[in-house]
Measured scan of single mutants.
Amino acid sequence: ATVGSICDLNLKIPEINSSDMSAHVTSPSGRVTEAEIVPMGKNSHCVRFVPQEMGVHTVSVKYRGQHVTGSPFQFTVG
């Protein structure tokens, strides 16, 4: 992922509605921003955001307030 470019995290989660999901990204400096959740068809969801700084980011994806399997996810920008 690169700073200022759209970053997509694709998840396969069976039998949940994306409208019941939420996602937030925490940057290396601790800034928390909301991420967009895009339905991608049956059981597939895309978490979309634009990182604003380099370094390790943490993406928390929740369904009805509970982390989904594997969340929070970490990835490096830059």
Rank of each mutant, 00 (worst) to 15 (best):
H67M: 07
A23Y: 00
V68F: 04
E36S: 13
N17P: 14
G78K: 06
N43D: 15
K62W: 12
I13E: 01
E34Y: 12
N17M: 07
M54K: 13
P51Q: 03
S18C: 07
G30D: 10
Y63G: 15
C46L: 00
V77D: 05
G41L: 07
P51C: 02
E15D: 13
G65D: 13
Q52C: 08
G70C: 10
C7H: 01
M54L: 12
V25F: 01
R64N: 15
V56C: 08
G55S: 07
E53R: 10
G65C: 14
Q74C: 00
V25M: 02
V59N: 02
H24A: 09
G4E: 02
S5A: 06
S44T: 10
V32Y: 12
H57T: 14
R64A: 13
G65I: 10
F73K: 04
K62A: 12
G70I: 08
E53S: 11
H45N: 06
M40Y: 06
V25H: 12
G65Y: 14
M40E: 15
P51Y: 02
S5D: 10
S18G: 04
T58V: 13
N17R: 10
V50L: 09
F49H: 03
V25D: 08
P39I: 08
G30A: 14
Y63A: 15
M40V: 10
V61L: 05
S29Y: 04
I6L: 05
G78L: 01
S60D: 14
V47M: 02
V3N: 07
F49E: 01
V61M: 03
G70W: 00
S18P: 06
F75Y: 11
V56A: 12
R48C: 00
S44E: 15
H24V: 09
F75I: 15
G4Q: 01
K12T: 11
Y63W: 09
T26A: 10
S44M: 07
H67F: 02
N43S: 12
F75R: 15
F75T: 15
T2H: 02
I16N: 05
T33C: 10
S18T: 06
P39H: 12
P39E: 13
K62N: 12
T76R: 10
Y63C: 14
K42N: 07
I6F: 09
A23R: 03
G78P: 05
T58F: 13
S44F: 03
V50S: 02
K12F: 10
S44L: 02
G65P: 02
E53C: 13
G70K: 13
F75W: 08
G78M: 03
G55Q: 02
N17A: 10
G70P: 07
S44C: 04
P72D: 01
I16L: 09
G70L: 08
F75V: 15
V61Y: 00
H24Y: 13
S44K: 13
R31L: 12
F49R: 01
V61W: 00
G65A: 10
F75P: 15
P39M: 08
V25E: 04
H24D: 07
S60W: 05
V3C: 04
V32R: 11
T26F: 12
S5Y: 06
D8Y: 05
V32C: 08
G55H: 09
G4H: 03
F73Y: 13
T33L: 11
S60T: 09
K62R: 11
M40F: 03
V3S: 03
S18N: 06
E53Y: 03
T58I: 13
T76P: 15
P14Q: 01
S27P: 15
E34D: 13
T2C: 10
A23P: 15
N17K: 12
V61H: 05
N43C: 05
S18R: 05
V59S: 03
M40L: 05
P39D: 14
M54Y: 06
V59K: 02
R48K: 08
G41S: 08
C46K: 15
T33E: 12
V47A: 04
F49G: 00
V38W: 08
H45E: 05
H67Q: 06
V25L: 12
I6T: 08
V56S: 10
C7L: 04
T76Y: 07
Q52H: 12
I13H: 00
F49L: 04
D20N: 13
T76D: 15
E34Q: 12
T26R: 08
I6P: 08
S18W: 03
P51S: 04
H57K: 01
I13P: 00
G55T: 00
N43V: 06
G78V: 03
R48Y: 00
T26M: 10
P51A: 11
P72S: 00
T33M: 12
C7S: 01
R48H: 00
V56N: 11
R31A: 13
M40D: 15
V50K: 07
Q52F: 11
V61I: 01
V77A: 12
N17F: 07
M40T: 15
H57M: 09
N17Q: 09
T76K: 09
P14W: 01
P51V: 02
T33S: 11
I16V: 10
I6A: 08
G4L: 01
T26Q: 08
T58Y: 14
H57A: 15
T2N: 02
V59W: 02
E15Y: 10
T26N: 08
N43A: 12
P51T: 00
V50P: 03
V56F: 09
R64W: 08
Y63H: 15
Q74K: 14
H67V: 05
T33W: 09
S60P: 13
K62I: 07
C46D: 15
T76Q: 12
G55R: 02
V25S: 13
V50Q: 04
V59M: 00
V32A: 10
T58M: 15
T58H: 11
E15K: 06
V59A: 01
Q66W: 03
V25I: 09
V32G: 11
V59F: 01
E53T: 12
A23I: 01
I16R: 04
T76C: 08
H24E: 10
S5L: 03
P72C: 00
C46Q: 12
T33I: 14
V25Q: 06
V3D: 02
C7K: 00
A23H: 00
V25W: 06
G70E: 13
A23N: 03
K62E: 14
G65E: 14
F75L: 15
K12V: 12
C7F: 14
P39S: 11
R31P: 14
T76H: 08
M40A: 14
H67C: 06
T76M: 06
V61G: 00
T58W: 14
A23V: 03
G41I: 05
C7V: 11
G4I: 06
E15C: 07
S71F: 02
S44V: 03
G4N: 08
V3Y: 07
P14G: 05
V77H: 00
V47G: 01
H67L: 04
G78E: 03
P72R: 05
K42P: 09
V50I: 10
T69W: 01
I13Y: 00
V50N: 03
